[in-house]
Computed example of a mutant assay.
Amino acid sequence: MTDFSSAGSGAGRPDSAGTRRERSGHWLQGSALLIIIAVLAIFAVLSPIFLTVGNLGNVLQQTAVTGTLAFGLTLVMIAGGNNSLTGGIDLSLAANLGLSAAVFATQLSQGASVAMAIVYALLSGAALGLFNAFAVVWLRILPLLATLTSMNIAIGLEMVVTQNSTVPVSGPLFDLLLGAGPLTLPWLAWGFMLLALVFIVLAHFTPFGLRLQAVGSHRLAARANGLAVSRYIAASYLLCGLASGIAALGSVTVLSGSSPGANDNLLMVIASVLLGVVFSRRLVPTIGGTLISALFLSLIANGFQLINVSSYWINGVEGVLILLVVSLASLLRQRQQRRKVRV
């Protein structure tokens, strides 16, 4: 371990560099929070019902689907590291949602029990996640290409299952999930918050989550310490697929069935994870940051609807936010790496 106590005039350099890194991270986080507060304040002024409990419950309910998908993608990106080309990514999770929702809805329409339909939906999501794990870990295909392939497979299978048509469903379970619970919030919103807590604990407070972070941040060191790196990466893809299956239950509930076009959620999911990076001290994906970002993006979409602005603007706003945050995070990481080299 290097001792800087006797480094003469350079003794303060590591501390000052660390201070500058912290200030850069705090500046990015502070700016992001100010932007969020400013946007929410504008919508609150333009629409009196924006900050009402009923509308916030509606936002939580709408976030349940994309937020759950984003939690799964966050695990993949935690395990895969920061490299945007060779690191962890799953482009198939939104298409996997559509396939799992189709399986769930068609099973119900064919007379299966709700419990069995849920099992089939979860197995469908996990199966595609396992396929991604096999392609990435054992066949060593770049995650970008492997999951792009599985995305097309999922889209094709969804069309086969549903004949590219809507499959409507109804029942007491869906009425219950959409009904008001404590504080007049829908039970689906409460379920989503409980699921967020489960993912936070799993990713950040369990040995599995800490090892997953070690695999993504320090892969060589993790392997040298005896961690089965490949298994943890595979587990992240499997859990991401399972998250797609869980999200399918929320999607069918909100839409009252399975509808084509689930892959349209992909941009918002990726935006949620990338924006969530700014809420991490080390500029890495976290479940908490992803949750905040997913809620923020849903609030933007909701605010646009309330003030009668075309929904076509939403994708443009998401694209600009992704570009801005990725650029700033990349710049800060480069500065951190240069300072470490100089130290």
Rank of each mutant, 00 (worst) to 15 (best):
G54N: 09
G81R: 06
T66E: 11
V59F: 08
L40F: 06
F71M: 12
L56N: 09
M77W: 02
A32L: 13
L73Q: 05
N58W: 06
A94S: 14
L69F: 04
A38T: 11
F71V: 10
T66S: 13
L34W: 08
I49V: 12
I42H: 08
L73P: 00
L91T: 00
L91H: 01
Q29N: 15
L40K: 07
P48D: 15
V59W: 09
L69N: 00
S31T: 11
V53S: 13
G87A: 09
P48M: 07
S84H: 04
I49L: 06
F43C: 05
D90A: 14
L33T: 08
N82C: 12
G57H: 07
G81H: 09
V45A: 08
I36V: 05
S92D: 06
L60E: 00
F50P: 01
F43K: 14
G67L: 01
V45W: 15
G81D: 09
G87W: 04
G81C: 11
N83I: 14
S92W: 00
A41N: 04
G25E: 05
T68W: 03
A70F: 01
L69K: 00
H26L: 13
L34E: 05
Q61T: 10
S31W: 11
T63R: 00
T66M: 15
W27S: 15
A41I: 11
G25H: 03
V65C: 03
G88N: 10
P48C: 11
G87H: 06
P48T: 13
H26P: 03
V76D: 01
L93W: 09
Q61I: 06
A38W: 01
N82R: 13
S92C: 06
A70C: 06
L60A: 05
L51Q: 10
N82V: 12
I36G: 07
T86L: 13
F71A: 03
W27V: 14
L34H: 07
L69Y: 00
L69P: 00
S92H: 03
T52L: 08
V59H: 08
T63N: 01
S47R: 08
T86A: 07
F71Y: 09
N83T: 05
N83S: 14
V39Q: 06
A70Y: 02
T63V: 09
G54Q: 07
T74G: 01
T66V: 12
G80S: 04
V59T: 15
V59R: 05
G57D: 06
L56K: 01
N83C: 10
L28M: 13
S92G: 03
A79K: 02
T74R: 01
N83V: 12
M77R: 02
L85D: 14
V76Y: 00
W27G: 09
N58T: 14
F71H: 00
Q29W: 10
S84I: 11
G54I: 10
S92E: 03
G72I: 04
A79M: 06
A79E: 01
N58H: 05
G30I: 04
G87P: 10
A38H: 03
M77L: 15
